Computed example of a mutant assay.
Amino acid sequence: MTVKTLKDLFIHDLSDVYSAEKQLSRALPKMARAAQNAELAAAFETHLEETRGQIERIDRIVELCEIRLKRIKCSAMEGLVEEAQDAISEGEKSAVRDAALIGCAQKVEHYEIASYGTLATFAKHLGFTEAAKLLKETLEEEKATDKKLSVFAESAINLEAEAAG
């Protein structure tokens, strides 16, 4: 896709994050199954439901803006999902693996925060007011998830991982 205008860039980046969310929706169940800590597994399941809602929100944005997404694969998310898969396959269920999974999940959240922040700004400049609101809603969800993961890691998982040796 040739990107010549801000609208082209908006469509490209929205297509990219759509791919990212789809990939994440396939990875989160694996991360939940791999977690030793039941609360962490539940947090991944909760985030899966949120991710599904974010995909639906992107579909709504496409309708509102009367655009068509491009069929692209988000290479960044592909790499982040691969890191999570490596963390899963490199050891048994343990607090250390849970700490690694949280780290992987936070890398994903930071990528999504950057993506949705950029998209919300583009939407605003393009006059896609309702789309900008929806993108900001997703941005706030991503920030909240990142914060929850930080609290969870610092209050429980990292301490358990440290105690494990």
Score class of each variant (00 low, 15 high):
H47I: 11
K30V: 10
A95F: 02
Y116F: 05
I157D: 03
I72W: 11
A35K: 02
S19P: 04
A42F: 15
D13N: 14
A99K: 06
H12P: 07
E50A: 13
L126V: 13
L64H: 12
D146V: 05
Q85N: 06
K143Q: 14
I113V: 15
H125I: 15
H125W: 14
L28W: 09
Y111P: 01
H12L: 08
T46M: 11
H125V: 14
L40T: 03
V108W: 11
I61R: 03
A114C: 07
G91C: 09
S15Q: 06
D98M: 10
E83R: 12
Q36N: 08
A76F: 00
K22E: 12
N37W: 08
R68C: 12
D59A: 13
L126S: 02
K143F: 01
T145K: 00
E56Y: 04
E142G: 05
D146C: 03
E141L: 03
E141T: 07
H47E: 10
E83I: 10
E50F: 11
K93E: 06
A41G: 09
A32V: 12
A120R: 00
L69E: 05
E50W: 14
G127E: 03
G103H: 02
D146G: 04
Y116H: 09
E21K: 13
T46A: 13
L134S: 03
Q23M: 10
Q54E: 06
A41P: 10
Q23L: 11
D146W: 03
E154Y: 00
R60M: 12
I61M: 01
I55M: 06
L40Y: 01
A95P: 08
